[in-house]
């Protein structure tokens, strides 16, 4: 394969250069990344999700997520015709190992992947007493684990249950939208491994991003819109019973 590797260097010089920086772990020298040129979001296409749990496993691998906690997880919904407001939901180990077969008992069944919504008016950053969690200029909500007190107010403030306290660092933790990847031209780990393309990273400031066409032509909503958090994870084809 050495020959092909050399071919890679010839064929994809830009990718190869990026990869060099990626491996060196020096984002400052990542070529051409400007914070103000991006506004990150994600699209979840519910009709495409097969509940395989690849995203949950990839997230844990990529981000060293401790066992039993989840930066992303998948829920299985069962909505019976009689109780649209009372769906039955389960997420065994966050859907990390997929879902056991279920008996069909009328109503509809579907999967809903969840992750931090990287809200533009995020309640979690609002309540942080010290500025240890914040929205970056490119629209990602991050936690500064060297500055976090571990007061857990942000965990309480998140309407979506996306935050937890890492038992090793004793600080708040959550999805970073794979900030270390997206700043280097890669997609997030969850989007990278999604076999059906149910998860798509999107850059709203990039006029060529297919997200614009998608948002124009589909019925898209966010989770708990009444919370008015400016959530930036858009769900296509989401049932009204999802919360």
């Amino acid at each position: 394969m050495d020959l092909s590797r050399r071919r890679l260097l010839m064929l994809l010089p830009a990718a190869a250069v990026a990869w060099k920086y990626v491996e060196a772990g020096t984002p400052e020298s990542s070529p051409n990344y400007k914070l103000t040129d991006h506004w990150w979001a994600m699209l979840i296409d519910i009709p495409k999700c097969i509940g395989c749990g690849s995203c949950v496993r990839a997230c844990a691998n990529e981000n060293d997520v401790p066992e039993g906690y989840f930066r992303t997880w998948v829920e299985r919904y069962h909505v019976s015709d009689w109780k649209i407001e009372r769906p039955e939901v389960e997420s065994p180990n966050g859907g990390k190992q997929g879902f056991p077969p279920n008996e069909e008992s009328g109503g509809k069944n579907f999967f809903v992947p969840k992750l931090c919504n990287h809200c533009s008016d995020s309640p979690c950053t609002q309540v942080c007493p010290v500025g240890a969690t914040f929205s970056t200029p490119d629209g990602v909500v991050l936690v500064d684990k060297t500055y976090c007190l571990g007061c857990r107010y942000c965990v309480q403030a998140c309407p979506y249950g996306c935050r937890f306290i890492n038992p090793k660092t004793n600080t708040a933790e959550k999805c970073t939208l794979c900030y270390h990847r997206i700043t280097k031209g890669l997609t997030t780990a969850c989007c990278e491994v999604c076999p059906t393309g149910a998860r798509q990273l999107a850059d709203l400031k990039n006029p060529n991003d297919p997200i614009h066409e998608f948002l124009r032509t589909h019925t898209v909503q966010v989770l708990k819109p009444h919370m008015a958090t400016g959530a930036k994870v858009f769900y296509n084809g989401m049932d009204g019973s999802v919360r």
């Binding site: 969690t133 914040f134 929205s135 060297t146 970073t176 900030y179 990278e192």
Partner: peptide
């Protein structure tokens, strides 16, 4: 950049990558 440690952004971006893409 705002009410937080600006260097934290670069630190978050420095996390090692597991999935090559």
């Amino acid at each position: 950049y705002g009410h937080y440690r600006g260097a934290a952004i670069a630190e978050a971006a420095a996390h090692p990558i597991s999935y090559a893409g």
